[in-house]
Amino acid sequence: MNPINWHSCFFLLAAAVACAAALGVVASKNVVRMAVFLLHALGAVAGLFFLAGADFVGAMQLMIYVGGTLVLIAFGVMLTARRPFLSMDTKLAQWIAGTLVGGCLLAVLLRSALSVDDWAGPVSAAPRAQAEDLATAAPLGMGMLGVRVDRLDEPEAARREGMSGYLLPFEIISVHLLVVLIGAAYLARSTRPGEARLRENVEDKINAG
């Protein structure tokens, strides 16, 4: 019997949690429980990132996705969690249509994923088992500043091609983020119609009475 491959074990564990939680998001009706399932799905995906050697992306996933975006979503859930919206039923026809679309998509994706034999196992002779050997943070940071340190071992021509780095996308995304945040703040800040009128009414009553 072959020795147990611990990397595979942890992969299977994380993958099982991710898939089960994703199905839980689909299956559960209660929006709060959906958020909990999503929390587990995203956390497990972060674990898969770690296993795939992307520890910086994994940490980012935990920090921004799980710690930021999901808190935001939970916030939204709680703000709108009134009885009728807590769990909303979907019509059977919609379920059938949705499952059909999803099923077809899954079939296509699985077909293409399983079609290449080379992808079934690791090709590289040196699997990177030790997480401490991974150093993705610095190359990523350098890449965002325009220096592709991950391409240093490539031939000159290929290197020059990729050496421009990600400075421009980084800048674009920064500006984009800023715009988006300002827009979100503006949207959420807008006063609610009716409320001002309501307040005025109340104040009149108080002043009169």
């Binding site: 491959n5 595979s8 299977l12 993958a15 991710a18 999803g102 992808w119």
Partner: peptide
């Protein structure tokens, strides 16, 4: 599954399941 090393396919399958679940 427990003894074989993990390949690209494994990741792609998980990704596909997540993707399809999201679409549904």
């Amino acid at each position: 599954l427990f003894t074989q090393p993990i390949g690209l396919t494994h990741y792609l399958v998980v990704g596909a399941i997540l993707f399809a679940a999201g679409v549904v």
